[in-house]
């Protein structure tokens, strides 16, 4: 069982992320017991049989950076957990995927960052709509993860709007004009 950050707090996590190994067939690969997050390919291949698991809240779907979130648009209301994979933390496609899921497609369930998820990206990830952050197993000790919670509040009033605060600073706060200096 690993620890994740969810809604700004540390939680023990029960979900297993299924990753296809070379030669695995999305249509037939065995699913681990318990709560499982399956790759998009598995969901698309077995939607009919997996729908009940999703409805029961024990099956989620993860997207890779190359996946189009539009491909699960019609499933969003039944999925209680969607994850986006970061194969490397510097691969930033997941930020746009999260922003699209939240703001374009109106996804309201748990949105989790998985893969190479590091504390120095927590602030940007939550701004783009991730409410749960799952660093790789063993990446951080509990104490390090507790220290990392501060990263969620690095900037108190960011300039631009994003998923967490859709309005930009100039709409959120009254900012003062200045008086002209005289020559």
């Amino acid at each position: 069982m690993s620890e994740i950050i969810k809604n700004g707090q540390i939680h023990a996590d029960e979900w297993t992320v299924l990753r296809l190994a070379e030669g695995d067939d999305a249509a037939t690969v065995a699913l681990p017991a318990g709560r499982v997050i399956v790759p998009l390919a598995v969901w698309l291949a077995r939607r009919e049989t997996l729908a009940a698991h999703a409805d029961a809240g024990v099956l989620g779907v993860w997207l890779a950076g190359s996946d189009d979130p539009a491909s699960i648009e019609s499933d969003l209301s039944r999925l209680q957990l969607i994850a986006v994979d970061f194969p490397k933390f510097a691969d930033g496609r997941g930020y746009s995927i999260a922003a699209l899921l939240r703001s374009r497609y109106g996804y309201g369930g748990e949105l989790r960052a998985i893969g190479d998820v590091l504390r120095d990206q927590f602030f940007y990830l939550t701004r783009c709509g991730f409410d749960s952050l799952q660093p790789a197993a063993g990446k951080y000790t509990t104490a390090q993860l507790e220290a990392a919670l501060a990263s969620l509040r690095t900037f108190s009033e960011p300039y631009q709007g994003a998923v967490d605060r859709p309005e930009p600073l100039f709409r959120r706060q009254p900012r003062p004009a200045a008086q002209k200096a005289q020559a």
């Binding site: 930033g92 930020y95 940007y124 783009c128 300039y159 600073l169």
Partner: peptide, 13 residues
């Protein structure tokens, strides 16, 4: 400048 400073979606282009 203000819009692009720490734009969360575009920090890892």
């Amino acid at each position: 400048r203000q819009w692009s400073t720490f734009h969360p979606e575009f920090a890892y282009l």
